Each structure stands twice: as C-alpha cells, then as structure tokens.
Amino acid sequence: MLKVGITGGIGSGKSIVCRVFALLGIPVYDSDFRAKWVMQHDPVLRENLIQTFGEKVYDTAGLLNRSYLAAVVFNEPEKLRLLNSLVHPRVREDFLNWSANQTQAPYILKEAALMYESNAHKQVQKIITVSAPLNMRIERVQQRDTHRQQTDIEAIIAKQLPEEERLQRADFVLYNDGQQLVIPQVVAIHKKLLTLSTQ
C-alpha cells in the first residue's frame, strides 16, 4: 500500500487538509493524537516514562499529566530528546499496526508535524507539505490556542524544521495561504496519488 506523509509547521493547516482527504475516503493517521493515546495506553511506554521522569508523569487517576511532562522537557533539549527516544519508536509501531488494517484504501496518510525530526518520513513513500506564511501561521495559532503567548509559538517554530527545508524535501506542496483554494489542490494531489497507488 502507498503510504503518504503530510507535514507542515505549526499553524500551517495540516488538520484542515487532512479532513478534506478524509472526506475523499482516505484514512488519516494523526501522529500527535496517537502519540498521546500510546503514552496513555502502552504499558511498556508507561513504565519507561515513570522510571525516566518520575511518578508525577501520571496523575492519581492514572492519566497522563501532560502539563507536568511539558514543563519538565520544554526548555531542556536533552530531556526532550530522551522523551522522544522513548515515545517515537512506540508510535512507529502503532502506525505499522494501524496501517496493516487499512486494506480497503488506495493509499493512507500519516500526519506528523515532526515528520523528519522523528524519522517518520522513513515509513512513507511520498510527502505532502502544507505551507503558509509565518505571520499567518502565528496568527492562526494565537486564535486557536488562546493560552499560548507569541514567544511560546516562536519557541515551537524554532524547534521545527525550517520551512525552506520542508519545501525542498516535499513531493507535493499544498499552499494554505489564503490566496489559493485548498480543496482543488487536495483533489489534484489525490488524483496523482490514486495513479501512483496503482503503479
């Protein structure tokens, strides 16, 4: 089966684009959502997280304490790398299990903000990058995540791959810049991927 990655910086509009693909009948694996699910439900990962970051990683109800974990790793590059080294392999395995069940689809999408940083690009054959101007991305995130300060958003962007590099490495670029309509671009890429999936 053809596996296609979809990526883009924070605020680029990946989720909206994925919803359009889903309406076309294409299964979408949301790496961010599944990572949270795996951290909550994978017993091996749970044990590793507790041993590495302490009992507070999960609250008294056994739920992942995301705010605690974020506070521990956000400004500590070494601890963030350690967290990713524990989580990313389990998410890769989860994706393999998920994709094995998508037998009816012509191709599948894996959505990941950190497509290259997490080595998720090695699990797909083609990559779509969703692109939008930086100021527009920051504005979108401020509207969506009212709790975030602009400095927080800029810190997240600084941890992501530069836009120029994402564009250079993409097989398809979809512009979500307010100038070009998204749906016709999705349909055009969808048609090309359908052709590729039969080759």
Rank of each mutant, 00 (worst) to 15 (best):
L2R: 12
T7L: 05
K14W: 11
S15A: 07
C18F: 07
A22F: 04
L23N: 15
G25C: 10
P27E: 02
R34I: 14
K36Y: 10
M39S: 04
D42I: 03
R46H: 08
Q51P: 00
E55S: 15
K56V: 04
V57A: 09
A61R: 13
L63P: 00
N65K: 09
N65D: 14
A70E: 08
E76W: 01
E78I: 01
E78G: 01
L82P: 03
L83S: 10
S85L: 01
L86S: 01
V87E: 05
V91T: 09
L96H: 10
A105C: 09
P106E: 15
I108R: 07
L109P: 08
A113W: 03
L114T: 08
L114D: 05
Y116N: 00
A120L: 06
Q125P: 08
K126H: 14
I128A: 13
M136S: 10
V141S: 04
Q143R: 15
H147R: 11
H147G: 06
H147K: 12
T151L: 01
D152E: 12
K159E: 00
P162I: 03
P162M: 05
E163H: 07
L167R: 13
L167P: 09
Q168S: 15
R169S: 12
R169Y: 07
N176E: 02
G178E: 01
V182R: 10
V187P: 00
K191T: 13
K191F: 09
K192N: 10
K192Y: 03
L194A: 09
S197G: 09
